[in-house]
Design a protein around this nucleic acid. Structure first.
Ligand SMILES: [Mn+2]
Ligand SMILES: [Mn+2]
Ligand SMILES: [Mn+2]
Ligand SMILES: [Mn+2]
Lengths: 220, 220
DNA sequence: TTTATATTTTAGTCATGACTAAAAACGAAA
DNA sequence: TTTCGTTTTTAGTCATGACTAAAATATAAA
């Protein structure tokens, strides 16, 4: 069964909100994520239920099915491959790619994605550090923690961001906290949870707990 | 005023059928080109008329407006740039690109097209030899004639094809009549208009008048 | 256990873009 | 100028995906 563009977008949202199929998801949460009204979501849930990509029990949340998970991961794969293309080949900034990828991910052509993957040399992560599922939907996730959970004097490397909004990404550009940057926690303020971070062994920056919670690192 | 994907497709069809705005176009012809019913075309013409990209007088044909011409050329530009990308970068065969480009041409992002153009090194022609309009809609067309109109012993170079169907393009691949091939008309058969053509100074091939009429060359 | 509140679904509407069947208009031939 | 065949438009319907307002259900509080 084929999915429409709208159905693919909903399914992707449900996949993300359910934490990859682990939790069930509410109508209101989907409405908030999709910036639509709950009534519209109810309509769509019936359709997705009919197509058996979600399990839908009225008034209780929805759960994504195995088939649905597979479909969602295909769309996520396409989204992230296009993001790599835009940044690596067309010199887009990492805060400029999301909206365009949101359109490109719906182009229907398995050959296109296969060739794009090869052209990009089979990237494993997108410009925001998120893993790119392979064509079977397998994801090699890296163990990673928000840097506000790191201890003082611990070192690591920024590998991803939780928030991909343009505003947040531009802030990270400004302070030099790009993906791949080596960091060390110099200090943590008990009172408000803010941190002092050494970036690339040369620049010390302060950030709020809120900001730090959206930056993910692997420890070393 | 923004155009929907469907509106862009119709406008492009009208542009082509009108020979770049030179002739007016009938409802039935548009229906044939779009593989829809005349009734659906009537609906769409009213919408395109409201948006002032065509001039629509009921029961008489439609004429594309200057604004409509500009919009159609933008879409054609995007279509052809994507075709170049697919062939040059992703190693698609020239008979595999049309359908995918038909989807990609509707992605809304001026920045994307600008960057793609640069990435492809500002190509002037698509894989089928058709000229790529610049961002202002200007087209540098080459003077070209169907090779069945060439005289015996005349030489030239294949620069484009009229028919971009996969079947025709695969036939051309088979006989080596690719874009850029140097050709010489060895013989023309009066009776059925078929030709004998020398390709790249080494291979002699026969082709019907029908085939030859779909191959365009510049004379030299 | 009843009530109140929040959540969710249904009913009814709208826009887009397709279709069929029927009506209307055009244009050429009689 | 009337008729006839072709072209085109209109009327009515359907599917998709959105909306508002109202009804239904679930759940937490009294
Ligand atoms: Mn999308
Ligand atoms: Mn991303
Ligand atoms: Mn198209
Ligand atoms: Mn082409």
């Amino acid at each position: 069964m084929n999915l429409t563009t709208a159905e693919e977008n909903y399914l992707k949202a449900i996949y993300h909100l359910s934490d990859g199929g682990k939790k069930s998801v509410s109508t209101n949460d989907i409405a908030a994520e999709m910036k639509t009204k709950p009534a519209s979501v109810s309509d769509m849930l019936r359709k997705l239920g009919d197509k058996e990509v979600i399990e839908y029990r009225k008034y209780y949340g929805v759960n994504i099915t195995e088939e649905g998970k597979k479909r969602a991961l295909q769309t996520i794969r396409k989204h992230r491959l296009w993001e790599v293309f835009l940044v690596d080949k067309l010199n887009f900034a990492w805060d400029e790619v999301h909206e365009v990828a949101e359109e490109l991910e719906h182009i229907q052509s398995p050959l296109l994605i296969q060739r794009l993957d090869a052209f990009l040399d089979y990237p494993k992560f997108d410009p925001h550090g998120d893993p790119i599922p392979d064509e079977y939907g397998d994801v090699r996730a890296r163990p990673r923690i928000p840097i506000n959970e790191m201890e003082i004097d611990q070192s690591g490397q920024i590998v991803a961001v939780k928030d991909s909004s343009a505003a947040f990404l531009r802030y990270l550009d400004k302070v030099g906290a790009y993906i791949g940057a080596r960091i060390k926690v110099l200090d943590k303020v008990e009172f408000d949870g803010s941190l002092e971070i050494l970036v690339d062994q040369k620049k010390s920056i302060f950030m709020s707990k809120d900001v730090a919670g959206n930056i993910l690192a692997i420890q070393s």
